[in-house]
């Protein structure tokens, strides 16, 4: 099972990056990635700067090389797709090692690989330094509708339970000699998924009733409001501000 469990996404630590208020981190991450995406692709120096920033943050957060490298694998299919660009893009052709490649296709490839990798690294640093309940509090502070963060909280809390049901069901099927090798063997998988939906739904009803019995009226009790001080916002937003400055410079010089 591709069971990358949610708690494995966080790297325990006590660095300043871990302690920063989540709302400032989330806002900074979004603003930073937007700056990266808005940068003209020919400004290679700007991407070198962004890379130094995110790798520096990952090192500062003590995430560790292995942790980051394993999580970077998510991007592999897109890198493969991007590798095709020089072959299928139109425009002027140049000869590289005997192969006719499109010049703009090569730039396209570089553009996607650089921006997707930098975006992914930013996400890894954000998720690696922010525990899930903390992240949800941050989203609340950023005024994401409460219904959404509440559903998110329940989903994350029960994800491992539902995944566990899938894997138990699979073990039970295997022990009865079900060993699917191609799509024609899909029916037992689909039937078990249907059964797990019914169980998940019924669990949802039980959870609701149990919570109602403890006084739940559709609203989670609001925790102490956790506002970030102006100084904290300034500290967190200084990096994306710098990144936007670099983006502006990159456009100006081109």
């Amino acid at each position: 099972m591709a069971g990358a469990h949610v708690h494995a996404l966080y790297r325990h630590g006590a660095t300043r990056l871990h302690r920063l208020r989540p709302q400032t981190k989330i806002a900074a991450a979004f603003l930073f990635v937007f700056a990266v995406v808005a940068t003209p692709r020919e400004a290679v120096w700007a991407f070198a700067f962004y890379a130094v920033v995110v790798v520096g943050l990952a090192a500062w957060a003590e995430l560790g090389f292995r942790f980051v490298a394993i999580r970077l694998v998510v991007i592999a299919p897109f890198i493969l797709a991007a590798l095709l660009f020089p072959f299928i893009a139109g425009g002027e052709k140049i000869s590289v090692l005997g192969a006719e490649l499109s010049r703009s296709g090569l730039w396209d490839m570089w553009n996607v690989v650089a921006k997707a990798t930098l975006g992914l690294l930013t996400s890894i640093v954000l998720a690696g330094t922010t525990e899930i309940p903390t992240m949800l509090r941050g989203l609340d502070a950023l005024r994401v509708p409460r219904v959404l963060t509440a559903i998110m909280g329940f989903m994350i809390r029960y994800l491992d339970v539902v995944l566990g049901e899938f894997s138990r069901m699979r073990v039970a099927m295997r022990s009865r000699a079900y060993e699917p090798t191609w799509f024609g063997h899909i029916r037992p998988y689909a039937t078990s998924a249907g059964a797990i939906f019914v169980r998940s739904y019924e669990r949802g009803e039980r959870v609701y009733l149990a919570m109602a019995a403890r006084g739940y009226d559709g609203h989670m009790p609001a925790g102490a409001t956790d506002t970030a001080a102006a100084s904290e916002w300034i500290a967190a937003l200084s990096l994306p501000a710098l990144a936007w400055l670099v983006t502006a410079l990159a456009w100006w010089w081109l």
């Binding site: 099972m1 909280g153 799509f183 998940s200 009803e205």
Partner: peptide, 27 residues
């Protein structure tokens, strides 16, 4: 209604889990 937030959360967990479980297509 917000009353059914736990229910929606469980359905989301189901969809998420179903996306994580792979099945063979061809070898």
């Amino acid at each position: 209604s917000e009353r059914q937030v736990p229910l929606a959360g469980l359905v989301a967990a189901f969809v998420f889990a179903a996306q994580m479980v792979n099945f063979p297509v061809v070898s």
